[in-house]
Amino acid sequence: MGLVLLALNLRAAITGIPPVLATLQSALRLTGAQAGVLTTLPVLCLGVFAPVAPVLARRIGTEAVLAVALALILAGVLVRTLPTPAGLFAGTLLAGAGIALGNVLMPAVIKRDFPDRIGLMTGLAMTLMAATGALAAGLAVPLTTATGRRTALTVWAAPALAAATTWTLLAARRTHSRPPATTPLTPVPAGPRTSVLRSPLAWAVSALLGIVSLCFYVLVAWTPQIMSDEGYPTAEAGAMTSVMLTIGIPFGLAVPVTAARLADQRPLVVMVIALKAAGLTGILLAPEHAWAWTGLLGIGIGAGFPLAMTLLSLRSPDPVTAAGLSAMAQTGGYLLAGCGPLAIGLLHTLTGSWDTPLLLLIACTVPELLVGLVAGRPGFVGAR
């Protein structure tokens, strides 16, 4: 129950804002620059606050940190309903910090509590994250129209409250049970930070997650505009993005389960990157068949992120390493991903075309493949 409730709260607070951004701009009189910062801030928070998670977990326990994380998400959802720009930005910052802590510790929890079901539980978490993210994006506009902006934003406080309560109870139970000294996420000889930072495998997994996240957030941000500029009606362009995200939901479950059953995940890496490269190339060369290409991209990005997240657990010999690797990978990955949409937008402005940005995204699949082949090879971080 704790894992399910945690996963339900790791996307909705982020994806529910972009669809109503125009409404927020009008109601709070935000400038274009402020709106751009608002869309980038959550992703940057995921990278900035990621390194804090394993440090706090070693000091106060994983359950306690996750209870705090979910309390931050709850506070952020409520604060950003205040009728001021400061409240909106402060709430987004709080929610982003909470989501960052939850993102990092989720692979460690799965490694600790479900060592024989890593694929299944990772897949379940990824599916729930994708589904609630898509649901929040899809309901944002109808709820705002029917009930008003503040009510629409507040609705996601309910699952956050349920999750925060659950993890508070789990933290209390862990404290009262007086676990032995080998409790996961307590210090061990040659601590995880040293072994992780010195491991080429850890850097490969981190780079893979970074490039996967970069492509995901760029496509979510710019696919509607790309398709609109290709001549598709605005509603159809938005529907393509929605379908692209929806197609990926079942792969969020299937890919982690499959990856955990394989000794070598490199075939999955090749398949995912090939689909992504084919979809991007198709949009560049034959945009008249955009529905087909966005379908391929939906499979590619829908499978790519869950695969990278599964590798955080599969390449870790223990929960301590999983937490350290997760923090390392998500710090660099989300900071890179946060800069991606801005960089692609600037490149489009400078060139006046989407050809160069698409070529750049296609080029990114080459280093993605190289690091993916290293990350997918059997082995553990820290092992010789």
Score class of each variant (00 low, 15 high):
3 L>V: 14
8 L>P: 10
15 T>Y: 15
36 G>K: 01
38 L>M: 06
42 P>F: 02
42 P>Y: 06
44 L>P: 04
46 L>K: 13
60 I>W: 02
61 G>N: 00
68 V>M: 15
71 A>Y: 07
72 L>M: 03
82 L>P: 08
89 F>I: 07
90 A>Q: 12
91 G>V: 04
98 G>D: 05
99 I>F: 00
114 F>H: 11
116 D>F: 14
117 R>A: 14
118 I>R: 09
131 A>E: 11
134 A>I: 12
135 L>R: 01
147 T>S: 07
165 T>D: 06
167 W>N: 03
169 L>W: 13
173 R>V: 07
181 A>Q: 00
182 T>F: 00
188 V>G: 07
190 A>V: 09
193 R>F: 09
193 R>A: 10
210 G>R: 05
211 I>G: 01
224 P>H: 09
229 D>P: 02
250 P>Q: 07
251 F>Y: 11
266 R>F: 12
266 R>A: 05
269 V>R: 06
272 V>E: 12
272 V>K: 09
273 I>V: 14
276 K>C: 06
298 G>Y: 12
300 G>V: 00
302 G>C: 07
304 G>R: 07
312 L>W: 06
315 R>H: 11
327 A>V: 05
330 Q>N: 05
338 G>L: 00
339 C>E: 00
346 L>M: 06
355 D>G: 09
358 L>H: 10
369 L>M: 08
373 L>Y: 10
383 A>R: 15
